[in-house]
Write a protein that binds this DNA or RNA. Structure first.
Lengths: 222, 222
DNA sequence: CTGGATCCTCAACGATACTG
DNA sequence: CAGTATCGTTGAGGATCCAG
């Protein structure tokens, strides 16, 4: 609406007019794991002013990036969902996510972890999502209160919110799971030190740790 | 410094704290084509308030993304340059650029084209930059007042600011060059209608038009 | 001339309260 | 549940000025 423009006929400038708005990238991240209600977004984005969320959603709807689905009969809640155009942002968000993750060492004071952020981290860690065809494993990853599932099947990895239906392995961890994904903590040590707890087929953990990687950047300043 | 934080231990959130700042993405785009002086940045970013540019550069320096090179003896100007960590943003910026370009139809009123934006468009159009090993051609692309060079050699494409040293072909065009890159204007028509003017080995133009593509997204709303 | 710093204004953001 | 309304605060925009 009253979106700020840069006055340049340039793809990056156009993109920046959208994703350069405060909170917008995080809203899109949350929507990228699945359709969400207004209240889901509020709870996944601690600290967002409700009026800011409302106006961002309105802007994104006008831009054709998000669609607002009025409660159809039977349903009782408004739901927001990415449009196909919104889904196209996936590669860019993954690239940003990967870059940002490369600079993360330890959580800053008071920083929290949300469902969507774990899902994003696992998605980035999954990389191109290609694994051997004969792998067939369902994982539930639990960090704090949130659960994410990760399935390796038919040669691809899929990541999403919520527990797996019939997980072969449930992994419970703290934020140290990031060190594991960064490759700075190996699977055996993670288990030995109690950084992760496993329930189910623990032999599947090595495969998890070996396959998923979000490396730290060697170029971050002290 | 007084950078706004999102309070989430998440790569995308960390990235958003940087690139979500107004003007920052465009500053980084300009720096991505090469080191720039303060005044180069000012002229490549029409409308940026000088204090905003100054504080962005300071923040980016503190983040280890940009470095400020004091004039060494012999030089007389301060120069800003991406650090290795800053260079790592390239893939994310390319992805955003590609996404934004997919939504661009015609310039909005008063929108301009800068050197860096053409370079970014050509870079995105070059895709993975792989071409047959035996191609060897140097192009200068001139749009308005700005010139960019594009070299296909040794199997890769390189794009940069300024004219090529010994161009085999000089392409002069208006913003319609975007339609060419979008694949909505074929090479012969572009020449026939005068949308582009060629100087040099015109036979190299078909290769240029066939190789470089920034497709429009089919998903943009009307 | 380059590389900023300063000042002022106003639109956008942030926090809280409140409503259909 | 899904937002509006209100109001204080912050940061961008724009012009000008200054030091090396």
């Amino acid at each position: 609406m009253t979106n700020q423009h840069y006055g340049q006929f340039c793809g990056l400038a156009r993109a920046a007019e959208i994703v350069g708005q405060r909170w917008t990238l995080l809203i899109l991240r949350d929507l990228s794991v699945g359709p969400q209600r207004y209240s889901d977004l509020v709870s996944g984005l601690p600290g967002i002013p409700t009026n800011t969320l409302a106006s961002r959603l309105k802007e994104l709807e006008e831009e054709g990036i998000v669609e607002r689905l009025a409660p159809s009969s039977g349903e009782r809640a408004v739901v927001y969902r990415l449009t196909p155009r919104g889904e196209e942002l996936g590669p860019a968000m993954d690239a940003l996510s990967r870059w940002g993750a490369g600079g993360m060492r330890t959580p800053r004071d008071g920083e929290i972890v949300t469902t969507a952020s774990i899902a994003a981290a696992l998605k980035v860690a999954a990389g191109d999502g290609i694994v051997p065809e004969d792998w067939d494993a369902a994982y539930t990853v639990r960090v704090g209160e949130v659960e994410t599932h990760l399935i390796m099947r038919d040669g691809v990895i899929t990541v999403g919110p919520g527990a797996a239906e019939a997980p072969d392995l449930v992994i419970t961890a703290g934020p140290q799971i990031r060190d594991l994904l960064a490759g700075e903590l190996d699977a055996d040590t993670a288990i030995a030190t109690g950084a992760v707890k496993l329930e189910g087929d623990a032999s599947l953990f090595a495969r998890f740790a070996d396959t998923l990687h979000v490396p730290y950047s060697p170029n971050v300043p002290a």
